[in-house]
Simulated assay, not measured.
Amino acid sequence: MSGTGRQRPALGAAPVLSGPAYLLRGFGMWRRRPGLMVLGMVPALLVLAVLVAVFVVLVLQVGDLVGWATPFLDDTGEVARSAVRVSLAVVVVVGFVVLAAATFVALTLLVGEPFYDRIWRETERMLGGEVPDADVGLLRGIRDGAVLLGLGAATAVGMVVLGLLPVVGTIAAGVAGFGFSAWLLAGELLTRPLEARGLTAADRSELVRGRRGPVLGLGMSVQACFLVPLGAVVVMPAAVVGATMLARDLLDASAARRT
């Protein structure tokens, strides 16, 4: 896989299903630069260790937390009280997972900036053409990470509110949270290769308009890997590669439509 002689997933047909194909192609970088990809796992491992520690504490304390937050249920029947509090506990845990997923990508890209910059540049060289050199900068990473954290927190709060509906609310909150967090992390992964070409946030939104399927598909496939033990660590370098490839194809498709 070198130069411009690369097979691209079709952006027009089965667009959501084309997203995971980019992640699979990203894993192909392990054959070309295994040492570089291993380095890309280091920041992911550090951030994951911190988030897992917080998650364990939350799971151990979530029962007391939900009980403290719902004193108005103390006078209700035991069955109803248990059903609502268990549902809320599940939603709180899932909400944290959504927040952690969004935070994980932002923090990992920020902590691992030197490693992922090298992976991104190697991917750009492999795909052919000049490597864009617009300054992205540390402040951009901090700013985008803060925005992503805020969106993730808002999503987690929304899931808790939605989860107030027993059973149905819990399921709906889980599905909605998975989809929205997948979209957030895909957007964060695409930010680097697009900003390096001088695209603003408005430009990026315009670029993905009408091509949301591949972006969501990539995010969902990366998100699914997060559910596997240590999957987040292994997938991050490949996700950076896959997102760079997707960004190039989105730009090419946009240019083709204008001609």
Rank of each mutant, 00 (worst) to 15 (best):
T123R: 04
R118I: 01
F72P: 01
G242D: 10
L165P: 02
L51G: 11
F104N: 08
L190K: 05
A243K: 06
G217E: 06
I171N: 04
M29D: 15
T244I: 09
V234D: 03
A239W: 01
G40K: 00
V47K: 02
A21W: 12
A247V: 07
L250R: 07
E188Q: 13
V241L: 08
V215Q: 02
R25C: 06
G163W: 08
A201Y: 12
V90C: 12
P166R: 13
L73Q: 03
A134C: 04
R33C: 02
A49C: 10
V50Y: 03
L164E: 02
V50M: 07
L109C: 02
A44V: 00
V56I: 10
P214H: 10
V98Y: 12
F115S: 00
R33K: 14
L164P: 04
A154N: 05
V175S: 02
G40M: 02
L60E: 15
V56T: 10
L139R: 15
A176Y: 08
R121E: 13
A10K: 14
T259C: 06
R197Q: 15
A201F: 10
I119E: 00
R248G: 11
A83F: 07
L162V: 10
A101M: 13
S221V: 05
V62R: 09
A176W: 09
L218C: 03
D75C: 01
Q61W: 12
E195C: 03
A13Q: 14
V111P: 02
S87C: 11
L107K: 00
V50Q: 04
V38R: 11
G231L: 08
L39Y: 06
L65H: 05
A101V: 12
W120I: 01
M236S: 09
V235P: 01
D203Y: 08
P15S: 09
L164C: 09
L17F: 10
A173K: 04
T170L: 09
G63R: 13
V94G: 08
V47L: 05
L127R: 11
R81L: 00
M29V: 03
R209A: 15
F104S: 07
Y22I: 05
G198T: 05
L164S: 09
L185E: 12
G141R: 15
V240Y: 06
A186E: 02
R204A: 07
L230W: 11
D203E: 11
S205Q: 14
V98L: 12
P71W: 05
V38T: 13
D135V: 14
L36F: 01
V131P: 00
L148K: 04
V175R: 01
R33N: 13
L230V: 12
A239S: 14
G150M: 10
R192E: 14
L58Y: 07
G112T: 00
A49L: 11
E78D: 15
P229M: 11
V94K: 07
A182R: 04
G5C: 08
R118F: 01
P9F: 05
A106R: 03
G163H: 11
F115L: 03
G26D: 07
M220F: 04
L189I: 05
V234C: 01
S254V: 06
R8S: 12
R81I: 00
G5H: 13
R25Y: 12
V52I: 13
G179I: 08
P43M: 02
Q223M: 13
E78M: 13
L109F: 00
A14E: 14
S82D: 09
M245E: 15
G129I: 03
E113A: 15
V157N: 04
